[in-house]
Write a protein that binds this DNA or RNA. Sequence first.
DNA 1: CCTATGGTTGGACTGTCGTCAAACAATCTC
DNA 2: GAGATTGTTTGACGACAGTCCAACCATAGG
Lengths: 105, 105
Amino acid sequence: MVDERLPQPDAEDIELVKVMHALGDPVRIRLLGVYADGGEHSCAPEAVGLGHLHKSTVSHHMRVMREAGITTTRVAGRNRYVRLRRDELDARFPGLLDALLKSLP
Amino acid sequence: MVDERLPQPDAEDIELVKVMHALGDPVRIRLLGVYADGGEHSCAPEAVGLGHLHKSTVSHHMRVMREAGITTTRVAGRNRYVRLRRDELDARFPGLLDALLKSLP
DNA sequence: CCTATGGTTGGACTGTCGTCAAACAATCTC
DNA sequence: GAGATTGTTTGACGACAGTCCAACCATAGG
């Protein structure tokens, strides 16, 4: 079967306030730092530096980020690979992602 | 009596995640747009385009923004004047405020 | 087919958030 | 000083959010 993607908003439907809300949480802004390399990342808590959280909690945070339009999730077999929607975010909110990544703690 | 300021964090104590959290609300990101002109603004709901909200609610939102380090409030008589802490935000999070203001709906 | 893997979903619990209303406080004006 | 003006504070209430646990589901590999 061909790769599929979990539900996510279209690029033009990404709302600034939802992006802000998604990043207004310590866990998720930390995830942003993990995704900053532009690569794909597994969902396992240990794979994203969240070994202290339950896997369902991590899944919840990833869903919030995906539904806000920050990330996209590719389904491949039993694995899911998450990465930043960098181009679409840059197009919609020019300079925002760069400024955020530079300001990360 | 000399003008005073309501409690606010020092510039170096402004935390990105708290700024994000403060702006992850429809009312407050709208306030950011009001303050974008750099000028001082009264706290009256009608003065900031929030005539549909109770004055105590508006007061609450202004406090959240102030305690996040986004705004500063000058006390003058019975009035309080709120404005953006633009220089300090620019110094701490370069480019962030510009990107946000450009992305405002 | 059986089992292990990687992740999602639903429920429960706790805590925080946005809103309003009423009371309060400080200042200005008469 | 009395009353009006400008906000803040406190309490109440419903809604939402973060976390864990248990159950579930789809797929991969024997």
